[in-house]
Simulated scan of single mutants.
Amino acid sequence: MKKITDPATIKRNLMIASLFVTAFEMLKSSVEDKIKGLLCEITGFDDEKGTVKTKVTPTYRAAILDRDIPEITNKKSDFQVFYASCLWFQDSGAITEEEVKDLQAIRKHRNLITHNPVRLLVDDAVDVNLELLRKAHHMLNKIDKWWIL
């Protein structure tokens, strides 16, 4: 019960959770956007959103959007794009099969944090997994460096 009654513990847990979610979003963006930039046609820039506008190409559609992933039943989900992008990096030799599993564990843990924040604050059995946070940082660095080299 200390988790919910101690202000310092609450503050610490919220800060670490924020770091984890931010790390995942940066990793997700790196994984998905680099492939999109490579395989899609750039059509302009959205000044309002600060993003590059792209047009889906047949290559991107085949490699990412239409990739057959038996574990995924909803082919239109964000998870499809993230998982297919992770597999693209594996196919390209940038990451291993074990690292793809780590990326899925990181995503699953991010979902636990963002969709069940009350559990994080009150359940003594639920904490931010610092090892997965470390792996997220490692994977972000690895993918970004691979892209450059």
Rank of each mutant, 00 (worst) to 15 (best):
M139F: 08
L121D: 06
N111I: 13
D66I: 04
V21Q: 07
E99I: 11
N129D: 15
G37S: 11
L130Y: 02
E32M: 10
G93Y: 04
A62P: 02
T54M: 08
Y83F: 12
M26D: 10
F20I: 05
E98V: 06
E25I: 06
L133P: 00
I16T: 15
L39V: 09
A136I: 13
S92N: 14
M15P: 02
F45K: 03
K55I: 04
R134L: 12
S29T: 14
K28V: 03
T96R: 03
D91V: 04
W146F: 07
D124A: 13
I148W: 10
F20Q: 02
K135A: 10
R107V: 01
N141G: 12
I69D: 01
T114V: 15
F89R: 01
A84P: 01
F79M: 10
P7R: 13
P58L: 06
D68T: 08
M1F: 12
E25H: 08
D102H: 09
D66F: 05
E71M: 06
L132R: 08
A63N: 11
H109Q: 14
V122S: 05
F89Y: 15
A62K: 14
E41D: 03
F82N: 01
G37T: 07
I64T: 04
V122Q: 02
V21I: 15
V52T: 14
I16A: 08
T5M: 12
D66M: 11
P7C: 09
R134P: 03
D102C: 11
F24K: 03
D33F: 04
A62L: 05
Q80Y: 01
H137F: 08
M26N: 10
I113E: 00
E97W: 07
I69Q: 09
I148G: 07
E25K: 14
I113S: 00
H109L: 11
D127W: 06
W146T: 07
N116K: 09
C40V: 03
K53E: 09
L27Y: 09
I42L: 12
S92R: 10
T43F: 04
P70Y: 06
P58W: 03
S29K: 13
K2P: 13
P117M: 12
T59I: 13
I106P: 00
E25R: 13
R110V: 00
D123M: 05
I143M: 06
T54P: 04
V118I: 11
K76C: 04
I113L: 14
T9H: 10
N116C: 04
L149D: 02
H137M: 15
F82K: 02
P58N: 15
G50N: 00
K108G: 09
A94V: 14
L39R: 03
C40K: 04
A84N: 08
E131G: 09
S77W: 14
K75Y: 13
T114K: 12
F79A: 13
I35R: 00
N13K: 15
A17F: 08
S85R: 00
D66Y: 14
C86P: 02
W147I: 12
S92F: 02
G37P: 00
D46C: 07
N13W: 05
K142N: 09
P70D: 05
V122E: 11
R107D: 01
